[in-house]
């Protein structure tokens, strides 16, 4: 992967000038590259990583992993069925996987009831859905390579040869 992308993946707020300094490249060239990445859909957006475990608000959401078993139908590939499912805004992630089931969803709702309703009313009744298994998420330890803990202090002695 381009070094620029690697840097931006870790810090989306970094400025073009800073990237230029870090990579010893011309800032205009970097700007051009970023614009192209945005245009090509390689960069899809800029987000902030929030440790929601620590956010105190009423809108705390419940998440669930849902395994979905699908009945394949003639002329309709997985893509078609997946699209019908991932278009629901409750579905934040949707993956086609190998193994004992076909789609793995991550679904978000304001409480368990909302998620149950989504499954009962929207997901399960779908013609091609053969069955679902739901795992409610209890605690998050690590997400996207980031360990969700307070940053640890530098344990080194402050000055040494």
């Amino acid at each position: 992967m381009d070094q620029i992308l690697e840097i931006m993946e870790n810090d989306s707020r970094i400025t073009v000038e800073e990237i230029a300094k870090l990579t010893k490249q011309d800032s205009k060239a970097i700007k051009r590259k970023i614009t192209k990445y945005e245009k090509d859909g390689i960069i899809l957006g800029y987000k902030t990583v929030i440790n929601k475990e620590l956010v105190q608000d009423e809108e705390k959401k419940v998440r669930a992993l849902i395994e979905v078993n699908i009945l394949p139908q003639k002329n309709l590939g997985f893509d078609y069925i997946a699209a019908r499912i991932y278009k629901f805004e409750e579905v934040t992630n949707c993956y086609l996987v190998s193994g004992t089931y076909d789609l793995l969803l991550i679904v978000e709702g304001k409480d368990m009831q909302t998620i149950s309703n989504f499954i009962a009313e929207k997901l399960s009744p779908m013609e091609n859905v053969r069955g679902t298994v739901t795992h409610f998420l209890l605690k998050k330890y690590k997400e996207y390579g980031i360990i969700l803990k307070h940053k640890e202090d530098d344990k080194r002695i402050a000055i040494s040869y």
Binding site: D154, R156, I157, I159
Partner: peptide
């Protein structure tokens, strides 16, 4: 000077001779 640094809080140290990685 080293003692001074070690006795001070909140110092940004560019004086460390070892990696900051664990």
């Amino acid at each position: 000077f080293f003692e001074l640094v070690l006795g001070m809080d909140d110092v940004i140290s560019l004086g460390v001779g070892e990696p900051d990685f664990i």
